[in-house]
């Protein structure tokens, strides 16, 4: 048995099982979705038969009809745009909240730093639904926050407001759930900065403000891009948060996809929406990678 043969056998045995599994349970399902987006909805939901036997013989039953529907109805484009806006606001808000925290952690001494990082990760590991549910309590109509706010507004002569089941609630939930995704890459980047750079900048006459904007921030851009991508992409396609916190005004594209698959059972159209979301998400991921590469220091 030759060495080369043995090496390729070894490689096959290690790579094979995970590769086959992922092809079967990720690759093929994805391809099916691509194909499903080109098919017609069945009479009772699901998909129409792929082959249809008509008077002119058997023919392949594929069409771009569902794509046509997507592009002709501006409602869906608007939903994508709205989801995009939600994700964008979420990413910006996360960045504003995460940056000081990441900076604080990165500048803390060793032991405390590990603890502070752990404290950021901990809530992230508690169940996603619980974290959303917590905001249902906080923003609920009878909650302390809502009542206090409305009392204040009443004092100013403004009519009481609802917090839960509004776009605001969706944004709060999105920010809350995604914040660690922004803190961690930022911290990973800031941690690597050489403290001597700031000393050098100060030595050369830079005040605190310029030290931050001219040294720390430009160097942290790869972390900013990575964090933005990590927040933006999942936020773009989320459905549980608007489902629980958003009410009817807070719907995002994820809710419509869920609706097409589980309620309306228009699978081809649901697949079209999913395809558009996939392309959008991948494009954004690619963009982030491109930016990250260009600014690599």
């Amino acid at each position: 048995m030759s060495a080369a043969w043995r090496a390729s056998l070894q490689r096959f045995l290690i790579t094979g099982p995970p590769l086959v599994y992922l092809l079967l349970f990720f690759g093929i399902p994805t391809l099916i979705m691509v194909l499903a987006s080109l098919r017609l909805p069945g009479e009772f939901g699901g998909l129409a038969p792929l082959w249809e036997t008509g008077p002119s013989g058997t023919e392949l039953n594929l069409s771009l009809e569902s794509y046509g529907r997507f592009f002709s109805d501006s409602l869906y484009a608007w939903l994508f745009f709205k989801s995009f806006l939600y994700a964008l606001v979420t990413a910006v808000a996360c960045l504003l909240l995460a940056y000081p925290l990441a900076l604080l952690i990165a500048r803390s001494p060793g032991k405390r730093r590990d603890l502070l990082v752990l404290l950021v990760i901990l809530p992230f590991w508690s169940n996603f639904l619980i974290r959303v549910y917590a905001w249902m309590i906080i923003l609920g109509p009878e909650s302390v926050l809502t009542r206090t706010l409305n009392a204040l507004l009443a004092g100013l002569g403004i009519a009481p407001v609802e917090l839960l089941f509004t776009p605001f609630a969706v944004l709060v939930g999105l920010v809350y759930v995604h914040l660690p995704f922004m803190v961690l890459p930022l911290f990973a980047n800031l941690e690597k900065h050489d403290p001597a750079l700031l000393d050098a900048a100060q030595d050369l006459g830079a005040g605190a403000w310029s030290r931050f904007w001219r040294v720390t921030f430009p160097l942290s851009l790869p972390g900013v891009y990575a964090g933005t991508a990590l927040v933006f992409i999942p936020a773009f396609g989320i459905f549980a948060i608007p489902d629980l916190l958003g009410g009817t005004q807070g719907i995002m594209i994820g809710n419509v996809i869920k609706q097409q698959f589980l309620d309306t059972r228009d699978w081809p159209f649901g697949s079209v929406l999913s395809m558009v979301l996939t392309v959008g998400a991948l494009a954004l991921a690619g963009l982030a990678a491109l930016f990250g590469r260009r600014t690599r220091v």
Binding site: F25, P29, T30, I32, F236, G237, I257, S274, L282
Partner: peptide, 15 residues
């Protein structure tokens, strides 16, 4: 890991 979870969910449902 990179794409929104819902996409994995619906494609597996179809599958």
């Amino acid at each position: 890991i990179a794409i929104p979870e819902i996409l994995t969910g619906v494609s597996l449902l179809l599958f």
